[in-house]
C-alpha cells in the first residue's frame, strides 16, 4: 500500500514498526570519566545508532521513493536531531538524567568533565522536561522523528531538474502524511478541538529547539575532533563532515 492511500493509523503503525531496537554501548565504563573517555563513549554510541538510523529511515513509507540525493541530504542534515530526540524520549521519565543507552546514563554534573558539553546537556534536559510536561505519547514521538527527517532540508535547496522537482513533490506529500498521522495521534487523546490545536503547536515548536541544540552539538563535536580529544571515524565522520 502506498503511503498516500494509508490511513493515519496505518501510517503510524508502519513507523512504529520501523523503530530501531534498543541499543547498548557495551563498554566497561571507567568512572570517573575523563574528557576523552566520555567523548569516546558518546561517539561510539552515536556511530552504532547511525547505522540503525539508516535502516529506520528506509522503513518510513515513501522514503526510498525519494531521489537518492534527497535521501542522503535529509539524513546528513538531521542525524544529530534524530539522535537527540531519541535521547529525550529515553530520558523523559528520568528527570535530571540523560539516558544515552540502558548501560550509559549520565547526570547533568557528569558533563563537567567535557569542556562545553554541560551547556548542551542543559538544553537537552530542558527540552526533555518540556516533553515530560506535555506527557509525550509514543505515537507522537515517532511522528515527530519522521517530521524532523523529512523537514530537515526543505528550506536549504531549491529543485533544479525535473527529477529533483519530482522528488521534492514526493517529499511534500510524505510530510502531509506525517502531519496527518500526528494530528490523528493527538485526536485520540480525548482533548477538546482547541486543546488539540494547542498541543500540535507546542509539539512542533519544540522541533526548533531540537534543531538549535543539534547545531550546538555539531559545533561542539567538530571542535572536539579538531582538538584531537576524540577520534571521529567511519559513518559518524562522514555525517559530521557534511555539516562542517
Amino acid at each position: 500500500v502506498h503511503h498516500s492511500a494509508m490511513s493515519p493509523e496505518e501510517f503510524i503503525s508502519r513507523i512504529m514498526e520501523a523503530e530501531p531496537p534498543e541499543i547498548y554501548l557495551m563498554e566497561d565504563l571507567k568512572k570517573p570519566f575523563t574528557e576523552a573517555s566520555m567523548m569516546m563513549s558518546l561517539t561510539n554510541l552515536a556511530d552504532k545508532e547511525l547505522v540503525l538510523m539508516i535502516s529506520w529511515a528506509k522503513k518510513i513509507p515513501g522514503f526510498v521513493e525519494l531521489s537518492l540525493t534527497d535521501q542522503i541530504h535529509l539524513l546528513k542534515c538531521c542525524w544529530l536531531e534524530i539522535l537527540m530526540l531519541g535521547l529525550m524520549w529515553r530520558s523523559v521519565d528520568h528527570p535530571g538524567k540523560l539516558i544515552f543507552s540502558p548501560d550509559f546514563k549520565l547526570n547533568r554534573e557528569e558533563g563537567q568533565c567535557v569542556e562545553g558539553i554541560m551547556e548542551i546537556f542543559d538544553m537537552l534536559l530542558a527540552a526533555t522536561s518540556r516533553f515530560r510536561e506535555l506527557k509525550l505519547q509514543r505515537e507522537e514521538y515517532v511522528c515527530l522523528k519522521a517530521m524532523i527527517l523529512l523537514n530537515s532540508n526543505l528550506c536549504t535547496s531549491a529543485p533544479q531538474t525535473a527529477e529533483e522537482l519530482e522528488s521534492r513533490n514526493k517529499l511534500l506529500r510524505l510530510l502531509d502524511s506525517v502531519i496527518d498521522a500526528l494530528v490523528w495521534a493527538i485526536s485520540k487523546m480525548g482533548l477538546s478541538t482547541q486543546q488539540q490545536t494547542l498541543r500540535l503547536g507546542h509539539l512542533t515548536m519544540l522541533l526548533s529547539h531540537i534543531r538549535h541544540v543539534s547545531n550546538k552539538g555539531m559545533d561542539h563535536l567538530s571542535t572536539m575532533k579538531r582538538k584531537n580529544v576524540v577520534l571521529v571515524y567511519d559513518l559518524l565522520l562522514e555525517m559530521l563532515d557534511a555539516n562542517t
Binding site: 547505522v51 539508516i54 535502516s55 528506509k58 522503513k59 537518492l68 535521501q71 542522503i72 539524513l75 546528513k76 567511519d234 559513518l235 562522514e238 555525517m239
Partner: peptide
C-alpha cells in the same frame, strides 16, 4: 562509495 550511500542502497535482509 561512502558508507551512507552503501547503507542506503543495500537491500534489507
Amino acid at each position: 562509495h561512502t558508507k551512507l550511500l552503501q547503507l542506503l542502497t543495500t537491500k534489507p535482509e
